[in-house]
């Protein structure tokens, strides 16, 4: 915590060394979050850059009470949601298209081991709306009420999209498992 405090104080003073230290320490963690929410790596890289710009510009508002990593995670998630909203018009069309496909066949998922890259590959294939709700609920641990407030949607929409996201993801993972075998 003391180490973080020095880095944070250096970043507040605008010291480049402290900023670089912060980047080296947390860039991979935040890139992982950005990748989960973004549709591809390029988009995730853009979001990660915006995340760090926000962190450096607003690090003075961190009050040293909560977890610093949690604070960074929250900025990454919020920036990803902002990015999702920016692309919402296109995302909606994709959601409808994919909804037609997923409604055809409910997948039966078996208990198999998957790597993070395999899971990420499947998550990236989810429609943006499903992907965002799935990440917020499953990994970030938000409740449906909080998700509905964050995204400006109905609670039932959040629940139904999570269910469809799960079905979609299980089917994708099953396909990967079949290829493995």
């Amino acid at each position: 915590m003391q180490e973080f405090k020095e880095i944070i104080d250096g970043c507040i003073r605008g010291e480049r060394a402290a900023q670089d230290h912060l980047y080296k320490k947390f860039s991979s963690l935040l890139f992982g979050i950005c990748l989960r929410y973004a549709g591809n790596r390029m988009e995730a890289q853009d979001v990660l850059q915006e995340v760090f710009v926000k962190v450096y510009n607003n690090i003075g508002s961190y009050n040293h009470e909560g977890s610093f990593e949690g604070w960074l995670r929250r900025i990454a998630v919020n920036t990803s949601i902002t990015n999702y909203r920016k692309n919402l018009k296109h995302a909606y069309q994709k959601d409808v298209d994919d909804l037609m496909k997923t409604a055809e066949e409910p997948a039966s998922f078996e208990d198999l081991e998957f790597t993070a890259e395999e899971m990420l590959q499947c998550i990236e294939r989810l429609p943006p709306g499903y992907r965002t709700i799935f990440n917020l609920y499953v990994i970030e641990g938000f409740m449906h009420k909080e998700i509905s407030d964050m995204l400006g949607i109905d609670v039932n929409t959040s629940k139904s999209q999570l269910s469809r996201a799960k079905t979609h993801l299980q089917r994708e993972l099953k396909n990967i498992a079949t290829v493995k075998i």
Partner: peptide, 10 residues
Amino acid sequence: VMGDYRPEVP
């Protein structure tokens, strides 16, 4: 699997 995923940054 994904909670602590830390990929390499380009």
